[in-house]
Amino acid sequence: MSLRCYFSQLLRSRLSAHSNTYKNSVRHATYKASPFAEDIEPTVKYEVSKNPEEWKYVERALPLTIVPQPIRKESYPSGWKPQTEDVKKLPYLVQRTKNHMIPVYLQISQRGVRRHTFVRKIQGDINLLEQELKEFLQKESFQPIRSQVNELTGIIRINGDHVNAIKYFLEKKNL
């Protein structure tokens, strides 16, 4: 028998004397989660208020569980615009995000060297949109615009940082 084995047996035999307390002690993950040794009644006097006027203030402090729908207004000073009904006439659709924003993103990789613009949530004729975007961006670019279409996921990837230009293009189409 190895020395370790011997020690563990010795330990077990010693512990058997206190086996009851050893088995009954429950290990709680945190101190806070462990139950009280005895039930503690609140020692402080308090009153229970069920005033609906006061509860309105509690509800005001609580966050909404969903993103609210924007209200239709004549003008939006911030420059943000909602999608209009005209988009149904177009052969493609760029769906808004759950925050009602245009899903155009910039991805920077290779230590800031590689910049790709992603247009997401595209439905309908994705190739036509790619053609139109390319034509639009080519005016301001010296080099040919390189792009990739993923029809399955509805994503267009364009080489370079064209986020603001594409957002401008889509806003013009009321998308």
């Binding site: 402080v44 006097k45 308090y46 208020s49 509860w55 005001r60």
Partner: peptide, 26 residues
């Protein structure tokens, strides 16, 4: 810190009640 809710109050979200201390010291 919250509009309309005084410090020292305890908000119970499950029972939708507010507990207010009565102790003078508090």
């Amino acid at each position: 810190i919250f509009y309309g809710l005084h410090p020292g109050w305890v908000v119970n979200l499950t029972d939708k009640v507010i507990l207010k201390p009565l102790d003078e010291e508090l």
